[in-house]
Design a protein around this nucleic acid. Structure first.
Length: 200
DNA sequence: CTCCAGGACAAGC
DNA sequence: GCTTGTCATGGA
């Protein structure tokens, strides 16, 4: 597994995730919620709107009317749902752990682990749809169950925050560049490992 | 025009 | 328990 990480790192270079302009962890959390099933470019516009209107803070999100909040994050799509999710998150006051994040409405496994890893620097491997798709097509995982896949990666990798961060980012980069193109295995850095004729 | 993007939740079976 | 529908903009 670490070999695959090295191949991707050598091929694409460091991705330096999570993108964050303010350097504030709250921006990472908001981004993690807004990017659910959504292109990052759209999320970027929504974050721009929040920053330009000086609304990117826990207290501001608490106080802003939900109708205005949803208008500001509109480019990110699902804006009504996501406005509710942001409200649900800022309403929570307790200690932030993986379990407590999962108890908040609107935060599922991937979002919780993204927040833990990239905002709080805790060693949870983030599993997204790309990860499941690519590694099952490589023949390395049997099921798509989230916790199974996360456990698989965490057990086969050194427990390193930076490796977890980069690897997930590299998987997304690999997917963006090669998962859509057909046939896969020519320019793909994992070509030699792909047992499938189809694309990753 | 269709398809999908760094998901999560609820309803239906 | 597992499968399907819903949420929605913007770019390819």
């Amino acid at each position: 597994m670490i070999e695959i990480y090295q191949i991707l790192l050598n091929h694409f270079g460091k991705q330096k995730w999570w993108p964050c302009r303010t350097g504030d962890r709250f921006e990472i959390i908001v981004g993690a919620i807004l990017t659910q099933n959504t292109n990052w470019k759209n999320v970027d516009k929504a974050l721009d709107n929040l920053i330009k209107n000086k609304m990117l803070s826990k207290n501001k999100i608490k106080k802003i009317p939900i109708s205005r909040l949803s208008a500001l994050i509109k480019p990110a799509g699902y804006y009504n749902q996501k406005a509710k999710k942001l409200k649900a998150f800022v309403k929570y006051n307790g200690k932030i752990t993986r379990a407590s994040l999962l108890s908040i409405w609107g935060i599922g496994y991937e979002t919780a682990d993204s927040i833990m890893l990239y905002a709080y620097n805790k060693p949870y491997f983030v599993v997204d749809a790309y990860t499941k798709r690519i590694f099952s097509r490589l023949g390395l995982i049997k099921t798509q169950d989230y916790e199974y896949v996360r456990n698989y990666f965490e057990s086969k990798l050194p427990k390193s925050i930076s490796v977890y961060k980069e690897f997930h980012a590299l998987i997304v980069e690999l997917a963006k560049r090669h998962c859509k193109k057909e046939p896969l295995c020519r320019e793909c850095p994992l070509a030699g490992r792909c047992r499938h004729a189809k694309r990753l």
